[in-house]
Design a protein around this nucleic acid. Structure first.
Lengths: 161, 161
DNA sequence: TTTTATCTGGATATATTTTATCCGATTAAG
DNA sequence: CTTAATCGGATAAAATATATCCAGATAAAA
């Protein structure tokens, strides 16, 4: 069970967008350059973030992406759900209805106990991610970063917007 | 992010093995028949369960599979880890070290905050699964089952061991 | 108005993982 | 010795993840 790389990229992309001033936008290619990832595929992830209303896009010359919500409203779960989807990762195929001793249709109105337990575990996973906001991530990331790097990033960003 | 079907199959397979009397074994093909799944692939899942010491196998004529531990010692997490592996599903590719403003090696001794948050969420997931034992599942399943079905299952099992 | 820069959406291609099957080797009962 | 079962590896098909490209839409700037 692997989480797509796009989730990692998208999370870092949103982190950069935190530093983009109000009213400005950062291009998809610039984001890809900053993260050192393939631009064409990064663009796909940005489109998924837009569909989920996590970022806004501005078309045309001088356009780009910006956050559609404040950083404390966006959670890691929002980002993951935008990229990977929010369908349960455990797929119950109703095995209990198969074979020589199938459970009756009527007894299968309540979900299979195994599926229920997995659903419960996935809820725990989602809730954990939903407790982490982008704001928290941005702060932690800047705390763990040297002053030199922060200045370098600010300069780079200036040259792109 | 999808959990492999094998996890579902393995969980149900272990459920059946709960009903196999001490000292007896149930063949892989019989398990597949009972669950209505492809025998060859079911056999692969049984081998994974064996590698994880969740089941024991007996080779040769009259052989088969049985639980290697008591039902209350086996958790859903054990089964899932046996089939899907226990590697983290979020893969941190150290994006922060990429691009025009890379983080220094020395500042990357502590894990990336994003990876850390995902690790935390996965721990919540695992702990939730680890709290559910096979015994609990077997009881719940039998509670939700009709007397007719339980008898049918017992008869079928008798014919196979 | 024309040019330029950017996102949009779909088509396509490649790599990886999942799903599935088969077969020879091994083991044990009859 | 013959039969019945798992073991382990090789292989193949299907699905998904990863990645690229291009024509079209849109908007700012010249």
């Amino acid at each position: 069970m692997q989480i797509s790389k796009g989730v990692e990229w998208a999370a870092h992309a949103c982190g950069i967008l935190c530093a983009v001033p109000q009213g400005k936008g950062l291009q998809s290619d610039a984001i890809a350059e900053f993260l050192g990832v393939p631009p064409a595929y990064m663009a796909k992830q940005m489109q998924l973030l837009r569909k989920a209303s996590i970022v806004d896009s501005v078309r045309g010359q001088g356009g780009g992406y910006r956050l559609a919500q404040t950083a404390d409203q966006i959670t890691l779960w929002d980002i993951m759900a935008a990229i990977d989807g929010s369908k349960p990762s455990f797929r119950c195929t109703e095995i209990r209805q198969n074979g020589p001793c199938p459970a009756s249709k009527s007894s299968c109105k309540t979900p299979c106990i195994i599926a229920a337990k997995f659903a419960q575990a996935e809820t725990a996973f989602r809730q954990s991610l939903a407790q982490t906001t982008l704001a928290e991530i941005a702060v932690s990331a800047s705390m763990g970063s040297s002053v030199e790097r922060m200045e370098k990033m600010a300069t780079w960003l200036q040259s792109k917007i």
